[in-house]
Each structure stands twice: as C-alpha cells, then as structure tokens.
Amino acid sequence: MAQMKFMCDAERCIECNGCVTACKNANDVEWGIQRRRVVTLNDGEADEMSISVACMHCDDAPCMAVCPTDCFYKTDDGIVLHDKDLCIGCGYCLYACPFGAPQFPKQNAFGERGKMDKCTFCAGGPADSKEEEYAKYGSNRIAEGKLPLCAEMCSTKALLAGNAQDVADIFRQRVVHRGHKDGAWSNNPQASTDNLAYDAARKG
C-alpha cells in the first residue's frame, strides 16, 4: 500500500504557475475554482520563496474528522477523496484544513456553497460511470497509471508527487547535493527527470 504525497521544493519553485494551469486543464474544474495555488512569501526581496500547494492528502485528515456527512474516504493509495453526492457544502472541511484546500463554487446566503471541490491527486472520485466521474471530479490519471499532471508538468521538478517514501528520498538526496555546482541534478540515480515523474503503477 502506497501513501501518496505531494512535496514542493521551495528552493526550486520559480512561481511559473505551470502546475496551476496543468491542474485546471487536466480536471476541467468549475469557473472560479483553482485546486492548486502558488504562494509566494517576501515577493521581490532577497529571501523570496514560493511554494505550490493543494490538498496534501493528510494522514488522519482533519477534513475527514470534522465533516458532518462523513463523506471523505482514503483510497488504498492514501489519497483523500470525497463523495459530492453526500457533501452538503457546510464549509467545515475548509475551517479545518491546514492548507486551505477545499473550495466552493458559490458563497451565497443561507450557507449555499454548492459542493466542495478539492484536489483529488488526479484520482477522480466515486461515480457510476467514467463520464460522471470526469464531470464531478476531473480526470482519473491514477487509474491509468499516471501521476497528477501538476507534478508531471512542473518545469523545475520543484513539485513532486508519489509515494511518500520515494518522494522524501529524492528530496533527501537533493539536500545532500545542494550547494553542488549543478544543484541536485548529477550523481543522483533517482533524480533523472524520468524517475522524478514517479510512476504510481510501477511501484504501487
């Protein structure tokens, strides 16, 4: 059983918003909703730092613990998904989420928010048909043996997605090599671009 995680290497993120665009494209989400965002601290200063964030598919996810409908579940890959048929749009998951991941299509009187939407790790969600799944949750790349499109398309490989252990190993090796004249890109068997776009199906 894998435990899928995203990891963003702040040393590498150049705030290009490619991940944000890739996500929009892969999942065709509703207007106004943006499952991934890039946050920049101290913009324009020497210590500027950017991080790409979306749902982090927490272990013991806080959203899961507070949802009144209990509509969240964790897949065997450790991905946190939710059932839009059950969701009542109460907003509690947003109150609890450490990363501000849940979003709502509306914000109207009487707590009418519509169905919560968040990153699915490109793993779709519960539905009767592929079409319904795509319409409600976006693409299911995991079922096709692919990783989330945001991480796959990250130009600097700042954003990594995959089994937590593997992603952490890659990062550790980078840190070991950091300061090296070619960054973390040489003498690192796992740091070739191929391996970084880690294949969930191969190592699942």
Binding site: V53, M64, F99, A164, F171
Partner: peptide, 20 residues
C-alpha cells in the same frame, strides 16, 4: 481525529528555514 497538520506541512514543503 488525531490528525497532525504540523507533520503534513513538513512533508509538503520540507527544507524551509525556521524563520520561514
């Protein structure tokens, strides 16, 4: 409900300085 956001944050964006 024993979730630990702190640990998640460290996984999500490691290598950030204490000040950050």
């Amino acid at each position: 409900a024993q979730a630990d956001p702190e640990r998640e944050m460290i996984t999500a964006a490691p290598g950030i300085s204490a000040d950050q």
